[in-house]
């Protein structure tokens, strides 16, 4: 039974490195379901946020929202349009 659960887990889940500054902020491995896309991961990590406020990269490269993630991928979700001005 334990062996089955192990194989099930290995078959349907994978680990990816996520860099995310929202909430507590972390750079760590997270487990996601096999076949998860970039858009789905974004929604899991930053629910309710506007994707246009972030640059999402996979393995340091720009990506499309429907790109399917692979085991060991590195996904960074970083803020965009950081600007300051004199009052």
């Amino acid at each position: 039974m334990r062996l089955n659960r192990y194989f099930f887990h290995e078959r349907f889940f994978m680990r990816v490195l996520t860099i995310n500054n929202n909430g507590g902020g972390f750079a760590d491995y997270v487990e996601i379901a096999d076949g998860t896309t970039v858009a789905q991961l974004f929604e899991q990590q930053i629910s309710g946020a506007k994707p246009s406020n972030y640059l999402i990269r996979v393995n340091r490269q720009p990506c499309s929202e429907d790109q399917v993630l692979q085991p060991g991928d590195r996904i960074s979700i970083t803020p965009t349009k950081i600007e300051g001005a004199l009052g």
Binding site: L55, R60, R74, T78
Partner: peptide, 16 residues
């Protein structure tokens, strides 16, 4: 003189 805007890709590189 009155404005600064970060480059988005450079911010991502900095995080990495």
């Amino acid at each position: 003189w009155v404005h600064v805007a970060f480059d988005d890709t450079s911010v991502a590189e900095f995080f990495d």
